[in-house]
């Protein structure tokens, strides 16, 4: 009886050890050439090294302070701006290049506009509804805003005789899939015709 109990005990210990050692040992042996990949998937390693296919345009992560590792898919590309003096409204058209293989939802986009030369606030722009940006496509988005009375006064007094002025975006807030990116700016959008 004592012998049976001891045998059962030994078998149970062997099972305990074997169930843990066998699978863990197997992968350690399989990855003994590159133990780093044992805990870090190749896709994450590529993101860290800045050559990811998941996030095209990503930059290598570094230990230094400053921008790193942020994909270019975050940056809107300015296309055009229009001003309607009668209704005192304007529109800014930007291209969002979704270089990811993954659909994105632009939930919010807002920014302040200011005169680049004087840093004078001119108004705000934004979108009203969420916009789908399909994977691998460039989606053109038009954001609209209202030109303030003060902005008009500024243009008349500070830019007398000009047909337009250089405009910058400030406090740009972009909400994509609940990832909210805030860029204080200013981001120059170039010369905007006013008349």
């Amino acid at each position: 009886m004592w012998f049976t109990i001891q045998i059962v005990g030994i078998i149970l210990v062997l099972i305990s050890v074997g169930t843990v050692v066998a699978p863990v040992g197997a992968v350690v042996v399989m990855y003994h050439d590159n133990l780093f990949q044992l805990v870090v998937p190749p896709e994450i390693e590529d993101i860290i090294n800045g050559n990811s296919t998941l996030i095209p345009g990503s930059q290598p992560f570094t230990n230094q302070s400053g921008p790193s590792g942020q994909g270019q898919f975050l940056t809107p590309v300015f296309v055009d701006a229009q001003v309607d003096n009668v209704s005192r409204t304007f529109s800014v058209t930007v291209d969002f290049n979704n270089s990811l293989g993954f659909d994105l939802t632009l939930k919010a986009l807002s920014a302040g506009l200011q005169c680049t030369q004087h840093s004078y606030p001119l108004g705000t722009v934004g979108i009203n509804d969420a916009i789908e940006i399909p994977a691998g496509e460039v989606t053109r988005i038009t954001v609209t805003g209202l030109w303030t009375q003060d902005a008009e006064t500024h243009f008349v007094t500070e830019h007398a005789g000009a047909t337009g002025l250089d405009v910058s975006l400030v406090n740009v807030v972009i909400n994509v899939n609940e990832i909210v990116v805030t860029e204080p700016g200013p981001i120059s959008i170039g010369y905007v015709p006013m008349v």
Partner: peptide, 10 residues
């Protein structure tokens, strides 16, 4: 990590 940008993730 990200410099002047501010990124909040839900």
């Amino acid at each position: 990590i990200i410099g002047d940008l501010s990124i909040g993730i839900g």
